[in-house]
Amino acid sequence: MAQVIEQGRGRARGSTSGRASAAHRHDGRLALILITPAVVGFLVFFAYPTVRGIYLSFTDFHVLTPPKWVGLANFRELVGDDVFWHSLRVTLYFVLLSVVVGVLVSLVTAVVLHRLTRSTVIRALILLPFLISGVVAALVWSWMLDPQLGIVNVVLNKLTGHTVMFFGTSAWAIPSLALISVWKSMGYNAVLIFAGLQTIPATVYEAGRIDGASEFQMFRRLTVPLLRPILVMVVILSVISSFQVFDIVQVTTKGGPADASNVLQMYIYDKAFSQFDFGYAATMSLALFVMLIAITFTQMRLARANESDLN
């Protein structure tokens, strides 16, 4: 195929070489013009804010007065800031819960979908929570989990005689938030895994069946290993989005009670937009950025994401 194209090009070049070079003389300039909007967008909305964010992390900046260079003072503050380390632990707990539970639930859902139904309607229904905005999802869940009026607590009270303050107690705050996060992202992850499942040839399962493997054995020995590249992608995407959780926390607990759900993004937002300490908030953002890069690279190396067992 490639050869055919190569030959075709050769013929075209051979027959109209003079005119073609004249016609393509200004292609470079045209290309530059065409990519200008993208480059401008990249520079204005990505490169400049990134560089400025890094610069601000070395300054004392309270928005209303110009930034003042303070060198590594913010980083020293970061090392000794108990709330930052507490927030990091809270975030890691949230990431762990939402990624582990989320991927497991999505995997099971996708496999069930794959084995039992071909219905696009059901697939679309599974995807629905993902299409709802985080703020709306969090608001609806905060009503459903309300200690006095929420339907979940009304049912719990009928069954057990007790209610649970899902967002009001330190022990429950993060698990409740993780539940919302899992509910919201489950459909999207399930559809990704479902797409991965469809790439596994039916012959593999046929061979498994001939060898007398049970449904569970085929899932463990065939499906999971063959799905690895997709699973790695889903895990990495889940880890990154869980690290960046903000909207559902802002709507439900606002970091409380007693900082129990004060995830990093929430703490950064609070420092910047409530205390106007933008310099220190930039330092924390930079720390989060570096952490996410490190985690992503480690995950990709460990999981050999670019290799597949199918070839």
């Binding site: 107690t169 330190s170 970091g255 409380g256 009670p257 007693a258 900082d259 004060n262 609070d270 409530s274 205390q275 106007f276 300490d277």
Partner: peptide
């Protein structure tokens, strides 16, 4: 005031929750 609020509120919550 904002820094005071952010620092003190979690402490009051923890105290009243018995933590």
């Amino acid at each position: 005031g904002a820094a005071m609020q952010d620092a003190m509120e979690p402490q009051f919550e923890a105290y009243f929750a018995g933590q």
